[in-house]
Design a protein around this nucleic acid. Structure first.
Length: 461
RNA sequence: GACCCUUUCAUCUAGUGGCCAAGGAUAUUGCGUUUUCAUCGCAAAAACAAAGGUUCAAAUCCUUUAGGGGUCGCCA
């Protein structure tokens, strides 16, 4: 069975890049009817927080991704890791190193000065003498000293490093706690993962983890290293480049399906297809189609996708979502009229809400520029006549209101704009927006007349 | 500094030696539809990082250079 995972360290919110790799993992598990597991990497007791775990779960929940089984917390598995450390020590596959931090720093300085890659020199690897006094040792793994460590990466292809590149790295600190690369390998193996999809900043950790797999006799999973997401300039994505917290997108009025569609196409593609429902993603996703190169973050396409999903969303669901943005039309019998009139004008829920409010709330004042342009000439007369005609028309549908406008256009032999502009500013206070007939159908004759009369009053004043 | 990964229009990408004088999408510009704005439709402009090879033939293979990214912790 295919098993994948997401393994965040709970130090903050869920990052947009983290969501993409977990989306890939989730899709791959779903496609193969496998499992997607969650593991919280909270071994750094000082830095992680419970709020961060909750923030991550909340973001998962928002986009509709869920994990199988119970989340695993590494902080609760220290006894297990200890067991493996002892085992490796006993088997002679790991050893205690009494080098102090100061000595290590000094070694690195020297290596750097010589232009070498810094690495531990193995001085305690075969140490049999009496340990120095007062030094709590760390435990180091005996990494192979010759040959190459290789694996086939599902994205990058064959990857291999010289054994000399991997030093005898620390698996347990002097306080006895295990280190990252050690616990990752153990957990990935024990959780039965078949496919590890993660950021390519972990590429260099992989050989280290393979050393652990082999020392412990675990079988090595498939690795897929996905290139990073950069900002539009191709630089590392930072907070200054816009929203990096997944939940910010909710607040900005994006739909989760748009965000997922956007992210799945960042570094992955399926021919020329742009629009993917979650079901299609699951059906079509394959890590072999993941791009090797990093991609740059540009929100234009997300905005387009969001508009697409808003246009196609059922009205009941849109109404429900709009509540968070200050518009509650859930129980309105005009719900369909309102959304049909506005949903093509809002690329985000924020914009959609403001479009709706523009119609629902009578203008409190008229923008001086708009008023000057729209209320000039014989606009007052036309508006006055329009009110009279409305009173006798008994209109209620979009078509009936349209007919009223049309009849005044015919009667006075004027262009549509002659009545349209003043009417629009009267109703909305704005020169742009939804169709006038649609607006009036929403407002009803009474409210329409009230707004127009107010405008006439304003012009005459 | 050392080592590694990567490089197709502004952006996301298709492309695995001939189907490519490079296709799609977004963004941009123009035209059309629309009382307006938006939607929608049509069209335009726009790229193989550079230089050398290999080959009858290269975006695709090799080398070098350059740009970008990553790693080099008793962080994860």
């Amino acid at each position: 069975m295919t098993r994948t995972r997401f393994a965040p360290s709970p130090t903050g919110y869920l990052h947009i890049g983290g969501l993409r790799t977990s989306l890939f993992s989730w899709l791959w598990a779903k496609k193969n009817q496998g499992e997607f597991l969650l593991r919280i990497e909270d071994t750094d007791l000082a830095r992680n927080s419970e709020e961060a775990v909750e923030a991550i779960l909340k973001a998962f929940d928002w986009v509709g991704m869920s994990y199988d089984g119970e989340a695993i917390f590494q902080s609760k598995r220290f006894d297990l890791y200890k067991k493996y450390i002892d085992q490796l020590l006993e088997e002679g596959k790991a050893y205690k190193c009494y080098m102090t931090k100061e000595e290590l720093d000094q070694l690195r300085e020297e290596q750097k000065a010589k232009g070498e890659r810094t690495r531990y020199d193995g001085r305690y690897r075969d140490f049999t003498g009496t340990p120095p006094e007062g030094v709590e040792p760390v435990v180091r793994i005996k990494a192979p000293q010759e040959g190459k460590i290789s694996f086939v990466d599902g994205v990058k292809g064959e990857f291999s490093v010289d054994a000399s590149e991997v030093d005898d790295f620390i698996i347990a600190r002097s306080d006895g706690t295990p280190t990252y690369n050690f616990v990752v390998a153990i957990d990935d193996a024990l959780m039965g993962l078949t496919d590890v999809i993660r950021g390519d900043d972990h590429l260099y950790n992989t050989p280290k983890q393979i050393v652990i797999y082999e020392a412990l006799g675990f079988s090595v999973p498939n690795f897929y290293h996905v290139a990073m997401i950069n900002n539009e300039q191709g630089r590392k994505l930072s907070k200054r480049d816009g929203a990096t917290d997944v939940m910010e997108y909710k607040a900005l009025g994006y739909l989760p399906e748009a965000l997922l569609n956007f992210l799945v196409r960042l570094g992955w593609s399926h021919g020329d297809q742009e629009i993917f429902s979650v079901e299609e993603m699951i059906e079509l996703f394959d890590p072999k189609d993941i791009n090797k190169s990093s991609s740059n973050y540009n929100l234009d396409k997300l905005l387009w996708l969001n508009a697409h999903y808003i246009k196609n969303k059922p009205h009941d669901e849109l109404a429900e979502l709009l509540v968070d943005f200050g518009v509650d039309i859930r129980d309105s019998d005009k719900k369909d009229l309102i959304l049909n009139a506005t949903k093509e004008r809002g690329k985000t829920l924020v914009e959609l809400a403001s479009q709706i409010n523009l119609i629902l709330n009578a203008p409190s004042e008229y923008n001086a520029k708009n008023a000057k342009r729209a209320f000039k000439g014989d606009a007052v007369e036309i508006l006055g006549e329009f009110v009279e005609m409305l009173k006798g028309a008994n209109a209620s549908t979009k078509e009936e209101y349209h007919a009223v406008i049309e009849s005044i256009v015919d009667k006075r032999e004027i262009g549509f704009g002659k009545i349209g502009q003043p009417l629009r500013v009267s109703l909305l206070g704005s020169m742009t927006g939804s169709g006038l007939d649609e607006i009036m159908a929403i407002l009803g004759t009474e409210e329409t007349i009230r707004r127009v009369e107010k405008a006439i009053e304003f012009i005459n004043a």
